[in-house]
């Protein structure tokens, strides 16, 4: 007979890992399926608001998370994204990129990912000049001209970092003004090697093998700028495509109640993939703990023999 897990956790960021630790301590038969370990935490720069650490880098905190979950010997399958889940009777079928699994309860903690531009050439030039991680790949563009797409905090943060590495930095935003914090906008505006292009939609990324430039549409005029690097910083989208039968809000986040329950019984959700307003590492971790305890409670109640209410 095919194995039925008590719990499958989707994702191994702070929410998924904490859920895993709690599940292990409750001795639940649990499997974690994930793309990577640490999630967005691994990509965060400096973390100064995670209780117990006055200062830690995101990468270090992610590796602490990994050590912690591995200590409990939970099965964590990395490089295995979940594609869909479906409830059939009391069983939830979880389909990943590699296999199919069954579970009695599921916690979705799949987090968020970078929003894609939707411009022509975006896929072809990924890692060939186009990147979604300025912190990681920035140093490769030393002495080159680059464009940062976006006008929010993460875009300006990336642009300001890049001014120290690249020759010329363009900030390209489709909005008519920058939306980042005023202090950052002022800094960007007075930095000599930054050029800000407002009201411009990025239409195409081009080059022979590596990026050589981008085509913009600014109002009625088209513009071409020659850059060797394109940094896409236009926000995040929840990894919630896998949850088709579950209620989501208008930005695709999974709707949960205060007990981390989704609209589908037996399926819980935690962390940045949910509609919980605050997106913080420590909040994701806390929500993960809640979800595991709720899942445990749900399974215990299911296993109890039904009460015969007519006897008395």
């Amino acid at each position: 007979m095919e194995k039925i897990y008590e719990l499958i956790i989707i994702g191994a960021g702070p929410a998924g890992i904490t859920a895993g630790i709690y599940a292990a301590r409750k001795k639940m038969d649990c499997l974690v399926l994930t793309v990577d370990i640490g999630g967005q935490t691994a990509w965060s720069g400096d973390v100064e608001n995670y209780t117990g650490y006055q200062f830690i880098t995101g990468a270090e905190l992610a590796s602490k998370f990994e050590e912690h979950i591995k200590k409990y010997g939970i099965e964590v399958r990395e490089n295995e994204p979940v594609l869909s889940l479906k409830k059939e009777g009391e069983i939830i079928r979880v389909k990943s990129s590699k296999s199919e699994y069954k579970a009695e309860a599921v916690i979705i903690a799949s987090g968020k990912k970078s929003r894609e531009l939707g411009a022509q050439g975006e896929k072809e030039f990924k890692n060939k000049g186009l990147t979604y991680c300025a912190t990681c790949d920035g140093p490769l563009f030393s002495g080159r001209d680059v464009a940062v797409i976006g006008g929010g905090n993460s875009a300006l943060d990336a642009a300001l970092q890049l001014t120290r590495i690249a020759k010329k930095v363009y900030i390209v935003t489709k909005d008519l003004s920058l939306t980042a914090d005023p202090v950052m906008c002022e800094n960007a505006e007075k930095t000599e090697n930054i050029t800000i292009l407002k009201g411009c939609v990025t239409k195409e990324i081009f080059g022979p093998r590596f990026v050589e430039g981008i085509k913009l549409v600014c109002g009625k005029t088209e513009k071409v700028i020659n850059v060797q690097g394109v940094f896409v910083e236009i926000g995040l989208v929840p990894n919630s495509d896998l949850a088709n039968d579950i209620d989501k809000n208008n930005v695709g986040e999974i709707v949960i109640n205060y007990q981390t329950e989704t609209s589908l019984s037996g399926v819980f959700a935690a962390g940045d993939v949910t509609d919980v307003a605050e997106k913080q590492i420590i909040i994701a971790a806390g929500e993960g703990a809640k979800a595991a305890l709720r899942a445990f409670n749900y399974l215990s109640r299911k296993k109890m023999p039904p009460k015969n209410e007519k006897t008395s």
Partner: peptide
């Protein structure tokens, strides 16, 4: 590698 890339750090570890 670059010093700020998490997968570089994980690979080295």
């Amino acid at each position: 590698s670059t010093p700020t890339c998490p997968f570089c750090q994980r690979a080295k570890k």
